[in-house]
Amino acid sequence: MYDFSFVKPGTVADAVTALASEDAQALGGGQTLIPTMKQRLASPAKLVSLTGIADMQGVSQSGGVLSIGGATTHAAVSAQAGGFAGLAALAGGIGDPAVRNRGTIGGSLANNDPAACYPSAALATGATIVTNTREIAADDFFQGLFETALDEGEIITAVHMPIPEASNYQKFEQPASRFALVGVFVAKYASGVRVAVTGASEGGVFRWSEAEAALGANFSPDAVSGLSVAPGDMIEDLHGSKAYRAHLVKVMTSRAVAAAG
């Protein structure tokens, strides 16, 4: 890891100012960024830690919406998001306990790893990603592998998720990395069902619209049994072929519906 300077501001405004300098980068829990810097795939001149900003911590609920501070750890979401059980379970299944004690929701969404868990919840709930300058709809936020709508130096300060009537996340774990080989988040609302898939596609997290339509008409595990996902866009690596991942998307969706009840 190349050396850098380190600052830990106490407010969003001070963090934004600190991030304005050249080659400055935000540091959340460091569970992705520190390993990346060790490999010298990133070499910022300055790290601006967001973990000392009280306004970016914690989970609250009002009017059917769960609000999560951008620097809230996975462990805190798992413990505090009781009003949205599907999300609490997702957070409690990320990585391992030590990763969950440091890693943050803002870092996970900003990183947009194609195998990360949170992007599926954000997309399936139609979340609003709040930054220091604007609000971004989840449908516009994720823009492909490791790509998001965030501008240089923009900070995710909070995430607002409409709480579904029923929801569940099914993760087919890749046991070595502990990330999702395929993960599916199903969220049922009065207005319809949203299904978001992570881990599977070369384009990153995506909504499976055929399943959404089928489940909107009939919210049961069998509703997706006649559907199939085109394997063309799926990821292929030593852990699974395109066809294997395409098949898993369907199986995980069906399991998520069964578990959501």
């Binding site: 380190f6 540091l27 460091g30 390993p35 060790k38 462990a75 030590a98 440091r102």
Partner: peptide, 26 residues
């Protein structure tokens, strides 16, 4: 040293963390 093995686990403010994946300054 790649955040995978947990041999470096310590407690910081009462919770387990991987000390190879946390800056001392933090």
């Amino acid at each position: 040293d790649t955040s995978q093995c947990g041999a470096c686990t310590v407690h910081v403010n009462g919770v387990a963390v991987k000390s190879c994946t946390m800056l001392a300054a933090e």
